[in-house]
């Protein structure tokens, strides 16, 4: 179960490298790699492969500009972002208390565990048709999709974090007759912070998956909807434009989590 906790780096990866010169060189080389990849794609679409299949970076850029001008870019991006963020927030609000309850009520957890794991193993994307029946074709069904993909991450990570808590520390506070609220505030909550951050790291990507899958199945707005609509017309440029925007949201999300992590960590349970 500890595999849930991924401590992979959120994007940047500059941390291990020291020195201004090394960093500048790194940034230069990254730009270089980007240019090579995008340039290679452009050349390929002019020579070997029909742009019908792979579109073309210049066309995608043009499309993005057009979408931005018409206001469609912001409308769809904002919609998908909102669905993912609401789903993530809801999963946090429900998953953390549930994780705490799982750690607190051991017998109840033992009873519920097979069912929790069965739900956790269910590919949540398969819920999308049901959620659209239940919650409609608009925002709410996508929020619930994002919520259902992320919920277990918070639940299981918080539970795992609380299971590894230092028993001696809790015993010590008991001998000092610390009120329960005091123990929660001073020990339990700070203790699970690294697990919450780990959950957020994974959750950002998963919430996006949930929202987009919902949009692909049935919707009237959002990047998933735009991608689906474009694909229906064999408009690969539109598909790629949607993908670029999704990637942008994911990268931005990772940067936000990395910032949160830097603020809170420097302490980590081993």
């Amino acid at each position: 179960m500890s595999a849930i906790i991924q401590s992979g780096q959120a994007g940047i990866g500059l941390a291990g490298l020291v020195g201004r010169r090394v960093r500048l060189g790194l940034i230069r080389d990254r730009i270089l790699l980007f240019a090579v990849l995008v340039g290679g794609w452009e050349v390929l679409s002019h020579t070997v492969v029909d742009p019908l299949w792979i579109s073309r970076p210049s066309l995608i850029a043009e499309r993005l500009v057009a979408l931005a001008a018409s206001g469609e870019l912001w409308r769809n991006t904002q919609r998908t972002l909102l669905e993912a963020v609401l789903g993530l927030a809801l999963a946090f609000a429900v998953g953390v208390p549930l994780g705490i309850a799982m750690a607190r009520y051991k017998y109840g957890h033992a009873v519920a565990e097979p069912f929790i794991m069965a739900l956790h193993s269910l590919p949540r994307v398969a819920l999308a048709p049901l959620f659209i029946i239940w919650f409609g074709i608009d925002l709410f069904s996508k929020v619930m999709m994002a919520f259902s993909t992320v919920l277990f991450i918070f639940m299981l990570n918080v539970h795992e974090g609380l299971k590894t808590i230092d028993r001696d520390l809790l015993d010590l506070l008991r001998t000092m007759r610390a009120p329960r609220l005091y123990v929660t505030r001073k020990v339990l909550l700070p203790w699970i912070v690294p697990w919450l951050i780990a959950s957020l790291k994974i959750g950002v990507g998963l919430a996006l998956i949930g929202a987009v899958v919902g949009e692909l199945i049935g919707s009237s707005a959002g990047l998933g909807w735009y991608i689906e609509k474009s694909a229906g017309r064999l408009d690969t440029t539109g598909v790629f434009a949607g993908l670029v925007l999704l990637m942008g949201i994911a990268v931005a999300g990772n940067l936000v989590v990395a910032r949160i992590e830097r603020r809170f960590s420097s302490w980590r349970p081993s």
Binding site: D166, D168, L169, D171, L172, T175, M176, R177, K186, V187, P190, V193, W267, P269
Partner: peptide
């Protein structure tokens, strides 16, 4: 009475 317990391991809050 207040009981002062001390363990072999230092049971400190690691983040504090």
């Amino acid at each position: 009475d207040r009981i002062g317990f001390m363990f072999q391991r230092d049971t400190l809050l690691p983040w504090a």
